[in-house]
Nucleic acid binder design. Sequence first.
RNA 1: GCCGGCGUGGCGGAACUGGCAGACGCGCUGGACUCAAAAUCCAGUACUCGCAAGAGUGUGUGGGUUCGAGCCCCUCCGCCGGUACCA
Length: 900
Amino acid sequence: MNDRRKPYPFDLIEPKWQSIWNERQPFHAPNPGDPDFDPTRPKFYILDMYPYPSGTGLHVGHPEGYTATDIVARYKRMRGFNVLHPMGWDAFGLPAEQYAIKTGQHPAITTRENVAKFKSQLQRIGFSYDWQREINTTDPAYFKWTQWIFLQLYHSWFNLETNKAEPLATYAGPDADVVRLAFVAEVPVNWCPELGTVLANEEVIDGKSEVGGFPVVRRPMRQWMLRITAFAERLIDGLEGLDWPEGIKALQRNWIGKSEGAEVRFKVAQVSDLRIVDERASETRATITVFTTRPDTLYGATYMVLAPENPLVDQITTLAQRSAVENYRTQVASKSDLERTDLSKEKSGLFTGAFAINPVNDESIPIWIADYVLMNYGTGAIMGVPAHDERDYEFAQKFDLPIRRVITPGCGIGLQLMNPHGPKKDDHRQDADATPGPFTGEGVAINSPLIDGLSTAAAKEKITAWLERRGLGRKTINYKLRDWLFSRQRYWGEPFPIIWRDGKHEALPESALPIKPPTLDDFKPTGTGEPPLAKAKEWIRYSEDAVRETNTMPQWAGSCWYYLRFCDPQNDERFVGVEAERYWMGHVASTGPSGVSGALRQARTKPGGVDLYVGGTEHAVLHLLYARFWHKVLFDLGYVSKPEPFQRLVNQGIILGEDGQKMSKSRGNVVSPDDVIEQYGADAFRCYEMFMGPLEQMKPWSMKGVEGVSRFLARVWRLLMEESQAGNWVLAAGVQASEPEKPLLRVLHATIKKVTEDIEALSFNTAISQMMILVNALTNAPVKPIPALRTLLLLLNPFAPHLTSELWQTLGRSFAGPRGDIAEKAWPEYEPAFLIENEIEIVLQVNGKVRDRVRVELNATDAALESTALANQRVRESTEGKQIRKVIVIANKLVNVVAA
RNA sequence: GCCGGCGUGGCGGAACUGGCAGACGCGCUGGACUCAAAAUCCAGUACUCGCAAGAGUGUGUGGGUUCGAGCCCCUCCGCCGGUACCA
């Protein structure tokens, strides 16, 4: 038998309890209205980022966050909360489809197999999910509602006046299609030839696809878009009240990329002077609008640049320049995104032959085109201010364009008024005339008649107002955020509930949902940009005169609202029941179970929603931004009760391989949870994942570390159990129904306190350390008092649920006391009185250096402590021949004698 | 470049609110048990000097504030993540 090699019989205990949990469903959370629902308990919604069930199975990174949430879930249940702790599958997406293309196996089959594998792996770890709430995004009963939410977007618009999404019924304009939140647009998109699909901006990294790392090119295509840009401001504002890591908030703010500035209109110089080719242009005097964050530098504009793709280029280019311009535009168009964003490359550009008039001084400045100006930001046109912008400076240097300084570092009048003591020293460190490059900081306007002497802030305001009065410009805000490209040319995704008739799109009625994808044998992308669904000739024919939309939704669609479905997963009347949504996603009850300390109560008064969401950073600008967007739309339309879905977010750190490198197949350093569980058991696996270090930190795996934790659990086992002559595990003789002695009692209650506080703070590694200290103390005690053992088992239960369930049951069979399942017992409370000692050790310092440690009575007076210190032999030696200047006494801590 | 995070023994990491640096675990050393090994238990383990008692040094670098700094402020260096011609 290999039994002897196992430190304790986890291989028998763990399957036993897992099947008990499976049978009795102790972790099922009833909804309001269900017979066994207890409305007196506060709710706690704790969510994991559900996985994409890949063919390779779970790796040790997944269960890190899952274990953390499981500990909190189990702990909260013991504290008397109604805990919603669900799990599901984000199963639409590329890998299953690509596997299908390779093998011919239908993605639905692949998905079913992978889900089964993932589920059994998760169950082997002993997670306390409410499996009755399991969801799968590829299930028609689920994606019916994904499609339904799309219809809500389709039938809504963003009302700028109310700053809200509203049903189209409130829209008074002539053409609803131009305002829908879900709309069709012909735009330059990220086309990935290798994947045969378009991708969202968020899915493109360094010019390559996030999935697979294939090159991505820009290409104009007609696609479904979601108007996320309408929510840009609210998506930024909403971050403020969220308890999220600062880094993730910064990432989202950065991605949305708000910048305040002004649009300025430049007239193109008189056509008659320019011999314009296009007759249409000769009739209208074209204007070019630029966006700038520095309208105060307007006098420094010595040229203008249009993006090569800017349609205005056709109107203004002179005959002489026409072929050269066309040439340049073709050149730029052929470049991949990667080449175009290559920073090290030199600036390129071309003069169009046209001139623009600077509205502040009527100066004629040349209009260029250059690929450093992007069509998809601002207006696709800029004013070139080489004296005060790095890129413009570089461009002007290269093409010998004039550079005019209009800002000087230092304080302007505006600033001086606010700061009567004059400029700070720092403002002088940059001498304007000595600095060779552009000066991009703020300062004082010069050579700018309208604003001379004004500080940057004052100058911006004045010049913008001046432009606005004359209709030459206006204050505006620009965002980097683009509308969300929402269609994909893939098979394995949600079909759109849309048909086309006479070249116009139409929504299908709700009663037609779900729209299931057709059965196909060939899932391959067509390569032309036409979706694979187009191959299903039967399916696409909706009626005599209408065809179905053949694009599918991106993988993010399902995950945009799965946390809502978990609240009410079987509802077939509504995407989530009103009451269920209000309960689980609403306010947290203001009063919780009694006997909770102040810090814990404070945590409970937070606004609600998902109370704790744990997952990786990789979704910072994808899932987490998209889901917030959908949630806000649903909130505006009155379907959900809170404007934000995830109140508190925590990112778990990456687990590295044993070699300190990122885990990867090619490095051969991947650790499989199955192997670890096989060798050490699920409880050891769970505890090790938590003992490695702080949850949010990146940390390397260590099998030796697992062994150490496994030894700890074995010691817990042997506290209660010993091997009989016959080789059976029996209750140990030292286990007795006595009360713990005082020193043990102190450790016990210190442990209750620390473990409780540490779980609340998600500091699981230190909670385990403290339990190790308690176990060491119990091991050294000749008698193991049952009350102390019971408390230990309760504290350890969220971490090692199998082991503690088994030992609890064993104790219950042999001794009087609480019976039944440990998970239903109340979390222990500590007694502050037991923590107090009569005598404590304090430190004696001389000039901040420790010289001795002495035991004194608790709460000894400062005077008593001072005289103790001054009388101390070692303190006297160190102060010999010196004069005592001062004595600092910190009660119950230390005395510091300052001597010189 | 910009934004965010992090630098503590041989290793993973502790240190509440500025008050004993290195908890807990790994590893290592020695011991007990054993014919032997494994397992288990006990003791030691930051560094330098010392037989020892002890002394000195020490939280990436340099400075500052303080009776007292791993923790607060400034400088620099290194690492990780994100982002990048966004006007």
